[in-house]
Amino acid sequence: MDKKILIIDDSEQDKKIMVRYLTRAGFDKIATAENGNNGLQKFEAENPDIVILDTMMPDTVGFEVCKKIRELKGFQRPKIVITTGSIDAVDALRAKESGADDYCVKTSDCEPLLNAINKLF
């Protein structure tokens, strides 16, 4: 697949896992960032098609970054999926309000994430 993905997540472990499964799923253009600021910079630099946002990061909350991305002008509108270590119904609402396209839980086999991405296209 030629969709560009940007993963904004502070967990090295999680990034490794996601990269592996995404690569196996056919995505070869994957960029990463480890916090909100870098994430935004990388976004402006790479302008990816899909952004995968972690909810909890050292400097900010995933929902805020999502909002900021939505506010950025002059970029192609990406699909945004917000991931979290633990699912919570109320956060789904928050995700939607921030402008995300979907919201899923992080698992060891990344299945919810892959499903969410598939649903987007």
Partner: peptide, 21 residues
């Protein structure tokens, strides 16, 4: 409790994933 379980999951996720890899 919530935070703990949330934070406990992350390394577990790691263990399971990497063991599988």
């Amino acid at each position: 409790v919530y935070t703990a379980s949330h934070d406990l999951r992350a390394p577990l996720r790691g263990i399971a994933s990497f063991a599988k890899f």
